[in-house]
Design a binder for these strands. Structure first.
Lengths: 248, 248
DNA sequence: CGGGAAATTAACCCGTTGGATAAATACTGG
DNA sequence: CCAGTATTTATCCAACGGGTTAATTTCCCG
């Protein structure tokens, strides 16, 4: 008792003397940490499986902070989702496909999409979660709808140029083409866990990834140009080909 | 009070006389109804979002029945998942690709995969859920692993035959090819909700679905055979082409 | 430097949910 | 027809989890 009282007195003295702070203000930083933690949590467990307490803990924050800075669980989720879309579209805008000749532009688009998904696995999980919810939240979002037409136009331009130059034999709906490219990348990575079990291969190891990228590029370009590249995926046998292509 | 008593007596009399049964036994039927309800529930809400009480209600059963006939929530989930895999593999086995010439076999495989996913949207949702869980449950399952090699061999045969006959210009790893075909179908359907919002089109309406199937067949066959089919998706402009292909 | 708004913490509330228990009821083999 | 087993019902509960309330601390600016 006496001892305790002495300690308390000491603590107070220290607090006054050295101005010991229990915490410091940082609203912007806090908000970012919250959103980052939320992204990881939603990506790892889905909307229903995510735990608000875990988000708070991983953000190094008090649970109350989530509600103070962002809102309830669903607001948090929507904020994360919007952020994720903004990020990928912003990177895509920097792709600059106009200056490449069409086949190279397509290859670059595939390469980018693949590596973006590889670098941002949470993005895949978030999209799946949102689709499970039938895009309920995305529909409410005003931000997201506007940011996609420029991208489609960019692809349309590439296709048109390719057809005019004779590089591409046929014309394609740019939306279909983009969906197909995204599909080839997305499905492989998003479902790699079950596919690896089913086919008894580790689909995420380096060689497998390189092989997959080569396969996708070959598939799409062969279809568009009619010229079959040599490397269409590893042979029917077991040999593994060296990667034909490296991330940017 | 008196009235009530009289009613009770009446009820008892009726029960004895007409042998009124409050319920009748049907273990197998019950089990099936439980699994069906569970499939819908897990597909609609994911593992964490699924509610055991809702499953019971939709199965027309008491909650206790789930635990009695199948097990706890995770057991239920695994049973549903295994059932889903069994169903698609079993249907695939009936595809009988051996008797078709290679390009037709591939087209048929795409057609089947597409329509299977279309008819069984829960299957897509279940796979996504399982991948969110990093295939944790599937790894535990002994049943599932074995049933896939025959299918891969079936595709391998088609590819080999195609190369030998000269129909296909290049050889392809059958696993890569199957993943690509599944990807083109799966991603479009599984993500149709968000994609529809983003691109401002209803991707599930009849014309869009027909268009998609034609696009996928054209893409894959063009890549394999080198012969571009005319119909590679709707033009760069806005015209919609009539469906080139109908479900079986 | 001090008062008040902004930021943060601590503690609590309460409906939900997975799961368990025991009693009641139907069926079946002897 | 009866005894024992299989199946179903009716409750209960403890843990969890999202959200809130109120107090506490920091910082800014007049």
């Amino acid at each position: 008792m006496l001892q305790l009282a002495r300690c308390d007195q000491q603590a107070i003295d220290l607090a006054k003397a050295k101005r010991v702070q229990k915490w410091q203000r940082d609203p912007e930083g806090m908000r970012l940490r919250i959103l980052e933690a939320a992204k990881q949590e939603f990506a790892a467990h889905g909307l229903a499986g995510a735990r608000v307490d875990r988000i708070a803990a991983n953000a190094g924050a008090n649970k109350r902070m989530l509600y103070y800075h962002v809102g309830n669980k669903e607001d948090l989720y929507l904020a994360v989702l919007e952020g994720a879309y903004e990020k990928i579209r912003s990177e895509e805008r920097g792709l600059d496909l106009e200056h490449l000749d069409p086949p190279e532009a397509i290859e670059r688009l595939i390469d980018f999409t693949w590596n973006y998904f590889l670098r941002n696995p949470e993005f895949l999980a978030l999209l799946n979660t949102e689709n499970l919810a039938k895009a309920r939240h995305l529909k409410r979002s005003t931000k997201v709808k506007s940011m996609h037409s420029p991208f489609v136009e960019m692809i349309r331009t590439v296709v048109t140029r390719g057809v005019e130059s004779g590089d591409f034999r046929v014309t394609v709906d740019p939306v279909q083409l983009y969906i197909s490219i995204a599909a080839l990348c997305f499905f492989y990575l998003s479902n790699s866990a079950t596919l690896s079990v089913i086919f008894g291969r580790d689909l995420l190891k380096k060689e497998a990834r390189d092989e997959r990228l080569a396969h996708m590029v070959a598939l799409v370009l062969a279809a568009l140009t009619g010229k079959s590249t040599a490397d269409f995926g590893k042979a029917v046998g077991q040999g593994v080909r060296p990667p034909a292509h490296q991330p940017v």
